[in-house]
Design a binder for these strands. Structure first.
Length: 196
DNA sequence: AGTTGGATGGTCT
DNA sequence: GACCATCCAACTG
């Protein structure tokens, strides 16, 4: 269990950074479905990314969960990270042990500090594509953080979409908690946009 | 502290 | 056959 501290928005087929830009396909079909569903896909042949479908059926939009601050079940997340690392083949047993050692030494805040790492820590895979994240009985679900004091959120440009033309490339559609240790480092967690 | 390149496979033309 | 909504190790300075 954790708190989401970094997300990115991909809005509509007109957004050239979105998987929906090419229209409905077998991979992105869930994005065109009802809101609240999980859209899970594989990137770079080895990492999964978890999104939440946000707009009514027919309009493709989703929010990518980029980072989660672990709050409970930290041992399970760590074990899942080790398991995900071990699952990769083509590496010698020695390097596998080294990577396992490195994960064991990781601070809890860094267990899900990136979109691929979120899925590794929470054991999210392609088989979770289409799940209803609003189902209170589901193992994988969203909950309202009741009782928490509101967190400061700031914005910045989205990460890893250099192929997208302006103005989309610079749209401040990445939202994160500035200074939070669990925000992804690739995104440069000390940077912040206009709003504060 | 910042940059670079390799791993790796599903998906679409 | 090209293209990735990434991560990490191994470099440079």
């Amino acid at each position: 269990m954790g708190r989401i501290v970094e997300v990115e928005a991909y809005i509509g087929q007109e957004d050239p950074a979105s998987h929906a830009r090419i229209g409905r396909t077998a991979r992105n079909a869930v994005m065109f479905g009802p809101p609240g569903a999980a859209y899970v896909y594989l990137v770079y042949g080895m990492h999964h990314c978890l999104n939440v479908v946000t707009e009514p059926e027919g309009r493709a939009a989703a929010v990518l969960i980029r980072a989660v601050e672990p709050l409970a079940g930290i041992d399970a997340m760590r074990a899942a990270r080790v398991g995900a690392a071990d699952a990769r083949r083509g590496r010698g047993a020695q390097t596998a042990e080294l990577s396992s050692r490195r994960i064991e030494a990781l601070p809890a805040a860094r267990l899900a500090s990136g979109p691929g790492l979120v899925c590794a820590a929470f054991s999210v895979a392609r088989t979770d594509d289409g799940l209803d994240l609003c189902d209170p009985d589901s193992d994988l679900r969203l909950e309202i953080a009741a009782g928490d004091e509101p967190l400061l959120v700031t914005t910045g440009p989205r990460i890893g979409i250099d192929y997208a033309p302006e103005p989309w490339l610079s749209k401040p559609w990445r939202f994160f908690v500035p200074g939070n240790d669990s925000v992804s480092t690739a995104a440069g967690r000390n940077r912040h946009g206009a709003a504060s």
